[in-house]
Amino acid sequence: MIVTLTVNGELRSASVPPETTLLVMLREHLHLTGAKTGCDVGDCGACTVIVDGLAVNACLMLAAQADGRTVTTIEGLATREGLHPLQKVFEETGALQCGFCGPGVIMTSKALLDHTPEPTPQEIRTALTGNLCRCTGYVKMIEGVQEAAAMMRSPQSPALAGQSPALAAPEQK
């Protein structure tokens, strides 16, 4: 069957067998490998993507269920102007070690911040219950989400200011 999605702002179609999950469609048909296959049964959250504004386990959703919807994956967060504050802060706080859970954690956190710009640490914990991490632990992630939230609330975002434009010529030494 043909499934058409708006993925990261682009209309993408693929012919997939009906039993294809959204995760398999993204990874194997659209070659967006940012969402990961961790447990494949909705326990680990490594496959988290945002569908119509809500964080979901892409492994527990058929591609057909997402037909006609808007999907945001980790590949759709950064812009040509810079990293998403969560990506910037997660890098700075060392919240990504092996990084396998990272895309899922960042997408869940993004969905949280989209609805709750000022989350309490408890709200962040609740939001992240569906994302497992085995290396980093959660402390730095919770700090990171708080910092990113503060950054996104301030109009002069320090994460985005002072960054070299992506296509600028390298500095001469």
Binding site: G34, T73, I74, T93, G94, L96, I106
Partner: peptide
Amino acid sequence: RAQRPDSRNHGLGLT
């Protein structure tokens, strides 16, 4: 705070 050289790629989903 230590930054891993590979964490930017991890965060971008490019690893």
